[in-house]
C-alpha cells in the first residue's frame, strides 16, 4: 500500500515539475499536457477572435447613407415587404391581393395598417428585421375588400377492416385584402429615443 502511495506521489511530483517546466517554456503546449485529465472537462482555450469594431463601420455607414439618400430623393422605386398577418407571412407590394384564412375580425371596407413587417426591400437594398424591422420605418396599408367562405372541403377518415368511416364537410372563412401602399418612412439607423410606447394610451 505504502509503495503504491509512494509511486503515486512520484507521479504527481513529476507531473507538477513537468507542468511548471512547460509553463515556463511555452504557453502553446499546455493543452496537450493537460489532456491527461480532460476526460471530464476541457482545458483547451476557447477559440476566439478579436473583432475590430471599426473594421466594417465605414462600409456600414456608406450603405446606410446611400439608402437614406435614395429614400429622401424618392428614387428607390417599387418597394416590397414581407408582412406577418394572422400567423402567415406574405410577400407584398403595392396593388397585391391577399387572402387570409380563418376567423379574422376586420370587416369589409376597413382600412388597416399591417405593422408586423419582417422585411422591406427595393431593387437596390433590403432591410431585414430581427425579427421585425424598426417600428415606424415602413408603412404597409391595406383595405379589406371581401369576406367569403372557401369551397367545401371534405374531411374523410376511414380505417380498413375496423368498420370505421367518418365524413365531414367544412368551409373556411376567408378575408381578401388589397395592399394599397408599401412605403419607406423615416430615416434608416435613426431609432426613436423611446420605443414601445406606440400602442400605449396614456
Amino acid at each position: 500500500m505504502s509503495g503504491l502511495i509512494r509511486q503515486f506521489c512520484n507521479k504527481l511530483s513529476s507531473f507538477t515539475k513537468c507542468y511548471s517546466n512547460v509553463i515556463a517554456r511555452d504557453n502553446i503546449n499546455i493543452p496537450s499536457i493537460l489532456s491527461f485529465h480532460s476526460r471530464f472537462y476541457s482545458n483547451t482555450p476557447t477559440l476566439h477572435e478579436i473583432v475590430d469594431p471599426n473594421k466594417d463601420k465605414f462600409i456600414t455607414e456608406e450603405i446606410i447613407k446611400n439608402v437614406n439618400q435614395q429614400v429622401s430623393q424618392g428614387t428607390q422605386g417599387r418597394l416590397f415587404a414581407v408582412v406577418h398577418v394572422a400567423g402567415k407571412q406574405f410577400k407584398v407590394t403595392e396593388g397585391d391581393v391577399l387572402i387570409i384564412e380563418g376567423y379574422w375580425p376586420p370587416n369589409v371596407g376597413d382600412k388597416i395598417s399591417l405593422d408586423k413587417v419582417l422585411l422591406l426591400g427595393g431593387s437596390d437594398f433590403t432591410l431585414v428585421g430581427r425579427p421585425l424591422i424598426q417600428n415606424g420605418l415602413a408603412n404597409v396599408h391595406a383595405t379589406v375588400i371581401e369576406k367569403m367562405l372557401s369551397h367545401t372541403k371534405t374531411h374523410f377518415r376511414k380505417k380498413r377492416r375496423k368498420q370505421y368511416k367518418r365524413i365531414n364537410f367544412y368551409r373556411i372563412q376567408q378575408t381578401m385584402l388589397r395592399i394599397n401602399k408599401v412605403e419607406f418612412v423615416g430615416q434608416l439607423n435613426k431609432p426613436p429615443d423611446v420605443s414601445g410606447l406606440e400602442y400605449v394610451i396614456l
Binding site: F80, G95, D96, I99, E146, K147, M148, S150, H151, Q174
Partner: peptide, 20 residues
C-alpha cells in the same frame, strides 16, 4: 353582402395575386 360574386363551384388555386 361581403362577397364580390357567386363563388359556388370554384376553388382558389392561390391565395395571393401580384402583378409584380
Amino acid at each position: 353582402r361581403t362577397q364580390s360574386g357567386n363563388h359556388d363551384g370554384t376553388r382558389l388555386r392561390k391565395l395571393w395575386h401580384t402583378d409584380y
